[in-house]
Design a protein around this nucleic acid. Structure first.
Lengths: 143, 143
DNA sequence: CAAATATGTAACAATAATAGTTACATATCA
DNA sequence: TGATATGTAACTATTATTGTTACATATTTG
């Protein structure tokens, strides 16, 4: 499985920044995510380089959204979080002397590309603001 | 990324069985895929349990498609090859005392489910027969 | 200026998944 | 009976992920 939890944590971080609407430190965020602050800082660093957040050093510093949550799509967050591709080709080059081995990879790449595009188009339609709305709706049903 | 090549190899195997249209041994298939026969046998075993191929022991034995290639969708192959989910939630449970931490996971699951469904619907539309057609078309442009 | 607080990143360990390999029990066919 | 196949256990090497400690550097406040 092409699984890692960085995408989930990145969405969590951005939703938390949107909800609290003030600079949050990596230590504070780590308390919500339940992990080590360095894990958070690694993700914050990539979010910052991608222009999704801004960070402020020093006392009472921390990170804030660089843009309104309505303007941050989950596809952007996904692209920052997942490097490489969802699907893998063969780990060794197939046999070039075999008609199938020689031609299977371009065919597979076409299939992979189409499937990934479909996945990404659904992520492009969702935003951090919608994630926050969903969380707020759950909170209201809990009170 | 948590990527594995089993899906690529499974499609390769099934396309090869369709192309050659005779029982192929794991050793022969391994020659085309360029890997160890045991790696192939592990995948053949799951394809067999899923009813996609039939295997014959003994001299001149090997595997054949259990159904015409037109009736084997790539989604079936994908479901056999990839267990678990494409996306992962947090590796530790988020803080239940935080409003965001308490509610982010159901929200994320909704996003993941939608994205995976989109990906899977593209795989449902493609078949092993189409993969074979694509390979044959490439072969013709090579002669 | 000095103390407190943050980030950013290097370095390392623990864990898990993947892929490759050897070995062998079992089944089938000629 | 011998040749050939599968199916699977067991082990290794490699890699990715996550968590952790440590520390240089930047910023704000008193």
């Amino acid at each position: 499985m092409g699984i890692n939890s960085r995408f989930a944590v990145a969405v969590h971080i951005l939703a938390l920044l949107a909800l609290e609407d003030r600079p949050l430190s990596s230590k504070y965020i780590a308390g919500s995510v339940n992990t080590n602050p360095v894990v958070i800082r690694r993700i914050l660093s990539t979010l910052s380089k991608a222009g999704l957040i801004e960070t402020q050093l020093g006392v009472d510093g921390g990170s804030t959204l660089a843009r309104p949550a309505e303007k941050i799509s989950l596809l952007e967050v996904y692209n920052v979080s997942e490097q490489g591709h969802l699907f893998a080709l063969h780990s060794n080059q197939p046999n070039p002397l075999c008609p199938c081995g020689r031609n299977i990879q371009p065919t597979l790449l076409g299939v992979f590309k189409k499937a990934e595009a479909a996945l990404e188009s659904t992520l492009a339609e969702a935003t951090i603001a919608e994630v926050v709305q969903d969380i707020v709706a759950q909170l209201q049903s809990q009170s």
